[in-house]
């Protein structure tokens, strides 16, 4: 782990901010058209306690939705990966479900469980993010080369042993690939619920209040806060992946 690994992305962020600032300044845009990075800091500072409180709401709901998505996604993926019939039966259902814009599901969920804001938000985060996990796990399991199975099966190993010793670990790289996609999707889900069905909590609510009070720098500040949380959670997943599926990474040559 060299300092470059941290310095390069940080430098990229700073350069990005610089060009953003430059763009706004050159065009002379007022901050209701496009806020510049220098407008954001005052907004962050002014609402720092709300950012902490609502940021935490959004964060834990997203993580909860993600955990649910992992559990259900892996379970569905296992069923579809191990049984042809279940795969044929469930794929069209899942694809159809995933094709429905989640913004249209929000009012349905909100009406189904009136007032259960935490649960509703978690549900949307889950619904939007389990699909890539289910698909990748099922593909990982169903594309297991028969030789892998034969080596253990010829020794009389049970299906569970084969799954536990070979199929499951072999699917981990695909699983983590999907989890990285799911992380960002889950944030979209959480905020969708918080913005479309405002209930006074979460960064989505803060965004909404910025809109209502025409505080444009605040709206941009919320977006940046979401981006930062997305990056943070993404790298948490990367760190977990390193521990459990680090073997899949080739040594640099």
């Amino acid at each position: 782990m060299s300092w470059k690994k941290v310095a390069v992305p940080v430098a990229a962020l700073i350069i990005f901010g610089f060009f953003w600032e430059l763009l706004v300044w050159v065009n002379g845009w007022p901050n209701y058209k496009m806020a510049s990075p220098s407008d954001l800091w005052p907004a962050f500072w002014k609402f720092r306690w709300l950012f902490l409180e609502y940021g935490w709401d959004t964060f834990w709901r997203t993580v909860a939705g993600l955990v649910l998505a992992v559990l259900c996604g892996v379970f569905l993926g296992m069923i579809m990966g191990l049984s042809r019939i279940m795969r044929d039966a469930l794929y069209p259902l899942l694809v159809g479900f995933n094709a429905i814009p989640k913004a249209t599901v929000v009012p349905i969920i909100a009406l189904l469980f009136v007032g259960q804001h935490d649960m509703n938000t978690i549900l949307i985060a889950f619904l939007i993010s389990f699909f890539p996990i289910a698909v990748s796990v099922s593909i990982g399991l169903s594309t297991l080369e028969p030789e892998y199975r034969d080596i253990l099966a010829s020794l009389g190993a049970s299906r569970f042993t084969i799954f536990w010793k070979i199929a499951l670990p072999k699917t981990l790289p695909e699983f983590f690939g999907a989890l990285k996609v799911a992380v960002t999707l889950a944030f979209i889900g959480t905020n969708l619920m918080e913005i479309v069905e405002p209930h006074g909590r979460g960064l989505g609510h803060l965004f909404d209040s910025g809109k209502i009070s025409a505080d444009y720098p605040l709206m941009f500040a919320v977006l940046i806060a979401l981006a930062l949380m997305g990056i943070l959670l993404y790298y948490v997943v990367v760190a977990i992946e390193k521990v459990f599926a680090g073997w899949a990474e080739r040594a640099p040559t």
Binding site: A153, S154, L155, I166
Partner: peptide
């Protein structure tokens, strides 16, 4: 009548558990 643990197999594809 079924798999016995008295056989050993090697294939053209030397499948290894990469982890």
């Amino acid at each position: 009548t079924g798999p016995k643990s008295i056989v050993g197999m090697a294939f053209q594809n030397p499948v290894m558990l990469e982890w």
